[in-house]
């Protein structure tokens, strides 16, 4: 899922303080799971803004609400009147939601309350770790299910660099060396020899380096092309 964290409150205040009517809009899927942007956090942020406004003797009308996902039309549609009737939407969605909503409403500014960080897993309560870079060309079958693109600080594809120390990355003792893990995992899987071949330079066009990406389901795309319009 997508992991993000809230921007520092001062930064948020700076960006919103000139608006009179603000809707803090939570997103109840990914960023709720990481306790950054769900309904709860939206209400907390809205209360924070109210306190701050009072302290600064600003009159700001702040409300909070949340939708299941800000990145899909159907979830947003029923709240659009609400959303449009405000001066500013302070979105607590990931960047996807902020973009999606901005594109959808156009005329009302949508500001981000979060910094969107990565695709992560939740190994335990309150901990979120990056495990995938969304590079569009998965090689996890070759690396014991551990992604060297996302989890090696240098995205090396042919083994560890010289910086590995006691299984940790040279960047920080808090980061596991992905290649150390890969080698150990492959040994365990009895598949170490899969690492012996030199991986050639890869095609990054499937990642962001190919420009913004789009995926359409083939059968729907084909049908629409044939019909000359959107399916309904």
């Amino acid at each position: 899922m997508i992991v993000g964290s809230q921007k520092p409150f001062d930064e948020i205040w700076e960006m919103i303080q000139s608006f009179k009517k603000i809707l803090v809009l939570g997103c109840n899927t990914c960023v709720a799971v990481c306790h950054a942007g769900g309904s709860k956090e939206a209400e907390i942020l809205s209360e924070m803004i109210k306190v701050k406004a009072k302290q600064m003797s600003h009159s700001i009308d702040v409300n909070s609400m949340s939708v299941m996902r800000q990145c899909e039309n159907e979830y947003l549609d029923e709240f659009m009147d609400n959303i449009k009737s405000t001066d500013l939407v302070l979105s607590m969605a990931c960047g996807v939601g902020v973009n999606f909503l901005s594109d959808k409403i156009n005329a009302v500014p949508v500001y981000p309350a979060l910094n969107t960080s990565f695709y992560g897993g939740v190994p335990k309560e309150g901990l979120f770790i990056e495990l995938c870079a969304g590079c569009g060309n998965c090689i996890l079958h070759l690396t014991g299910g551990i992604c060297p693109i996302a989890r090696c600080s240098k995205s090396l594809m042919n083994g560890p660099c010289g910086g590995t120390d006691k299984g940790k990355c040279e960047v920080s003792k808090d980061i596991d060396c992905a290649w150390f893990l890969i080698v150990e995992r492959m040994k365990l899987l009895g598949a170490l020899e899969k690492l012996y071949d030199v991986q050639p330079p890869r095609d990054w066009s499937t990642s962001f380096h190919g420009g913004p990406r789009k995926i359409s389901l083939e059968h729907i795309k084909a049908y629409e092309e044939q019909q000359g319009g959107q399916i309904r």
Binding site: G159, G162, T164
Partner: peptide, 19 residues
Amino acid sequence: ASWTPGGEPLDFRPVNLKK
């Protein structure tokens, strides 16, 4: 190319060099 003979995982380092 460089090589870290004493790096971890020790038994993979020869493979690293070979590659």
